[in-house]
Design a protein around this nucleic acid. Sequence first.
DNA 1: GGTTGGTAGTCTCAAAAAGAGACCAGCACT
DNA 2: AGTGCTGGTCTCTTTTTGAGACTACCAACC
Lengths: 136, 136
Amino acid sequence: MDSKIINLKSKLDIYKAMTDGGNLADCPVRDVIQGLSGKWSSLLMAALAEQPYRFGELRRLVPDISQRMLTQTLYDLQRDGYVHREVFPTKPPSVEYSLTDLGRSMFDALQHLLQWAEFNHDAVRAARAGFDATQA
Amino acid sequence: MDSKIINLKSKLDIYKAMTDGGNLADCPVRDVIQGLSGKWSSLLMAALAEQPYRFGELRRLVPDISQRMLTQTLYDLQRDGYVHREVFPTKPPSVEYSLTDLGRSMFDALQHLLQWAEFNHDAVRAARAGFDATQA
DNA sequence: GGTTGGTAGTCTCAAAAAGAGACCAGCACT
DNA sequence: AGTGCTGGTCTCTTTTTGAGACTACCAACC
């Protein structure tokens, strides 16, 4: 009887230890990553890493983003300290977005993933095709 | 008269050149990144990078994921070739998920970003607090 | 032999997020 | 006066996500 109880107990302990020890569920990483895991975040970071852009330029540069999502994603990136927003009081006032130091630092890390993606997208596409074939 | 037309034209050309030349909107990177930009993808990758897990183990390991999203995210990761799914015909059949070589390769790149996040989450939290203060 | 608990999921419905597109005010050029 | 540019906001619809009930099978327990 006890053997089973011990089994169960040790299992729970293992899970608890994992949750505490692993860096999976504890907030710091997730808290930061969630801000970058949006559909447009990495794309806009890549754009702004190249050079500063104005709102309308970004909209034209990424034609399939809606104004609403562009506004909101830039707002989120600004809030997290990656992007600097500067308003110029020209006749039609223009707004320029640029990376902060923190943003550039983060983009350096993100860059690895982007390069991996560029390099291995054939492998991923092949995997998808193969998977879909076996499922059909 | 012509000067303005030329201005407009050159502007359009610039945008066009950007769209073609930049790696922002062209699909290869986006196609791959979108698969990783889900809310749970990087978290599950981190878990499986540590060791293989079974379905129920992952569910307990990440308590705030719903079964639906766990099923679907694992499915997507498997489809993109990052995760291997193996069914063991035990009495209650168990399913083990593990990283493929492609998955490990991708996680190496992702790891940079995760480490950056762990290292800089104080700066990000500070930026958020400061931003929220000025907006209030 | 009926209850409980473990396996890995699916199904349905509500809530949240994203996309599409109208609308705004102000100014410049025609 | 009409058109187009600036950077947005507002509303409506569609998609995605989350919460949780439900399936089916088996094993142990009472």
